Computed example of a mutant assay.
Amino acid sequence: MIKYPSLEKNSTIGVTAPSSGVPGELHKLLHTASDSLKEKGYNITFGDTVWSQNKAKSASAKKRAEEFNQMMLDENIDLIIPPWGGELLIEAIEHIDFDNLNSKWVLGYSDVSLLLLAITLKTGIATAHGTNLVDLRGEYSDQTTAKWENVLSAKHGESIVQHSSEKYQKEWDHDNPTPHIFNLTEQTYWKSIDGNNVKIHGRLLGGCIDVIRHLIGTPYGEVNNFKEKHINGESVVWFLENCELSTTDLRRSLIQMKLAGWFENCAGIMFGRSPANTPVGNYMVEDVYKELSEELQIPIIYDIDCGHVPPQITFINGAYADIELTNGKGTVRQTFK
């Protein structure tokens, strides 16, 4: 059974950096995000790790884990949102106290998705893959990003519907900031392998493939054990996004996931838009998707709103999802059951 936290009004957000912290010259981003969230009625508690960054991490692995553990135990903190992702969260994973985590939302993506997936697989506590803290610093959020509050406020037994974005951001334009942070200029169009409309149903699991692949073969990546213990063997729908991998590295990673049993009883896979997916020779990312679809005999949807090319739908690890792709538009219904 999946345990779903629930976000209440006037909640306190704990901000800790289990991966990268924020260097001094960018502390203004934290203050602006804090001000924006306070205007919405939230209280903000910052951990020490948030304010420092050295040698590709906010602090030592033990300090990062200890601060996260403390915030998960603190009854005055209702939700945890790291400032952003990073590179070396995996160093801290063995020091996370999975046996004593209170049920509360953890929201983020990129390197943080490794922690999110590990929590859900180990404990059955649902986790939220979506926006990070610094991207909530705008005067308001675009409709897709803003849905994080509705999703996290849903109660056990309820369903929440999200739709694909109207437009997405192709590249950052820091010289021309917008009230909602992102410069949404490109028409969003979700795609399938054969160009047909698609329906997929199952339990959601996923994250940034660059990092979650490193859970394979560890005590924190036991997907089949999770299926038996928490979802009664139901089928899984994977949502994945590629931050920096070439097409061949992506292919190797997906094959490793397949060989590790992660795609057993898989109902379908969704891939986010990617700034990477660089071709190797004439080997394109569409080739990767097509080959995987044929091997697993499952539908694959790609260029969805997930990952490093914003905006993002808020996907809940562990939730039951009904996903529909119709003429380039996507609908995701998540049910907390």
Rank of each mutant, 00 (worst) to 15 (best):
T278E: 15
I298Q: 03
V285A: 14
I304G: 10
D303H: 12
G307D: 05
G307A: 06
Y289A: 01
I301C: 02
F315W: 12
N282T: 14
E295H: 08
E294A: 05
N282K: 15
G272N: 04
Q297G: 08
G307S: 04
V280L: 14
Y283A: 10
T314S: 06
D305I: 09
H308S: 11
T278D: 13
A276F: 11
R273Q: 07
D303F: 00
Y289K: 05
I304T: 15
E286W: 00
V285W: 10
L292E: 15
Y283M: 11
E294P: 01
Q297H: 14
D287L: 08
R273I: 00
I304P: 04
V280P: 08
G272P: 06
V285L: 09
M284V: 07
P310N: 02
Y283C: 10
G281Q: 03
T314P: 01
Y289R: 09
A276R: 06
N277S: 10
I304K: 07
V285D: 13
K290M: 08
Q312P: 03
V288T: 10
G307N: 07
V280G: 04
R273F: 03
V309E: 14
G272Q: 02
I304W: 02
K290V: 07
I304R: 03
N277F: 09
L292M: 15
P275Y: 03
D287V: 13
G281R: 07
D303E: 15
E291M: 05
Y302H: 03
C306A: 12
P279D: 06
